[in-house]
Simulated assay, not measured.
Amino acid sequence: MMVSGSLTDRRILVVEDEYILARQLVRALTQEGAVVLGPVPDVARALAMIDAGQGEIDVAILDVNLAGEKVYPVADALLGRGVPFLFASGYDADEGDARFAAIRHLVKPLTMKSLVAALIAIMVVPGDG
């Protein structure tokens, strides 16, 4: 089911280490017409993908905890490039890095409808377009 607003042809980086959730995200985003980059399961691969400039990234979904490693270096890299992103985590937002307090934080388990709506919302920049 397509949600109004659109992820069609949007390039979405998925940084998620849980295989089943990563597959669900890819499936749902693809059904919305998005081009999924990844999923990548760790910070090193995510940074490599960003640094390699494998196409423009329109928006990203970042799992906060990747097998015990925090995703914050990826968040910093995306901020430095002006790429909007949100966190998806099993943790409450107030347990995260205070530097990212203003970043949208979705708590797992995710509903795909709320995820799609959140992605569309953070891609819409006032005065853009």
Rank of each mutant, 00 (worst) to 15 (best):
L86Y: 02
S114R: 15
K113Y: 08
R81Y: 07
D92Y: 06
E69T: 12
A121F: 08
V74L: 08
A67N: 15
D17W: 08
D9F: 04
P39Y: 12
V116T: 13
L79M: 09
F85V: 15
A46R: 04
S6G: 14
L37F: 14
E18M: 09
I103K: 11
I61Y: 00
S6T: 06
E16Q: 07
M1H: 14
V59I: 12
E56V: 15
I12S: 00
A93L: 03
K113I: 14
G38C: 01
Q31F: 11
V125D: 05
N65Y: 02
T111R: 14
T8N: 09
D17H: 13
V35E: 10
S114N: 15
A52Q: 10
Y72F: 08
R27L: 11
L62A: 11
V59A: 15
V36D: 09
K108N: 15
G90W: 04
R11F: 01
G55T: 15
H105P: 09
A93M: 02
G129T: 13
L106R: 09
I120T: 12
E69H: 07
F87I: 00
G68D: 11
G127K: 11
G33Q: 09
Y19R: 07
H105Q: 12
L66W: 14
D92F: 04
S89R: 03
G68V: 07
P41C: 07
R45M: 05
P84T: 05
G5R: 06
P73S: 05
D42T: 13
H105E: 09
K70E: 14
A28P: 07
A22M: 08
G82D: 04
E95C: 10
A52G: 07
G38I: 12
I120Y: 03
E16D: 04
K108V: 01
V74N: 08
I50L: 02
D9P: 01
V36G: 04
I12W: 06
M1Y: 08
P73C: 11
V35F: 12
G53F: 06
V71W: 03
V15A: 04
A88F: 00
D92K: 04
L66E: 08
E56K: 15
L13V: 08
I50E: 08
A101L: 09
A118F: 09
G5W: 00
D17R: 04
D92E: 12
N65V: 00
D63P: 05
V116S: 00
S4H: 15
A28T: 02
Y72L: 01
P39V: 09
I103L: 14
R99L: 05
V3P: 04
V36Q: 03
M123F: 03
V125T: 13
Y19T: 13
V116Q: 01
Q31I: 08
I120H: 05
R11Q: 13
A117F: 05
V35W: 03
R27H: 14
E95Q: 14
V3M: 10
N65T: 08
P109M: 01
A98H: 03
D17K: 13
A46V: 06
F85R: 10
D92N: 09
V36K: 08
V74A: 07
H105L: 03
L110R: 02
G5V: 10
I103Y: 03
A75M: 10
G90C: 09
D94M: 05
L78E: 10
S89E: 06
M123N: 13
L79I: 02
Y19I: 13
R99N: 04
L7I: 03
R45Q: 15
D51K: 00
V14H: 02
G80C: 11
L79Q: 11
A88Y: 00
I122H: 02
L106N: 02
E69M: 03
K108R: 05
T8E: 15
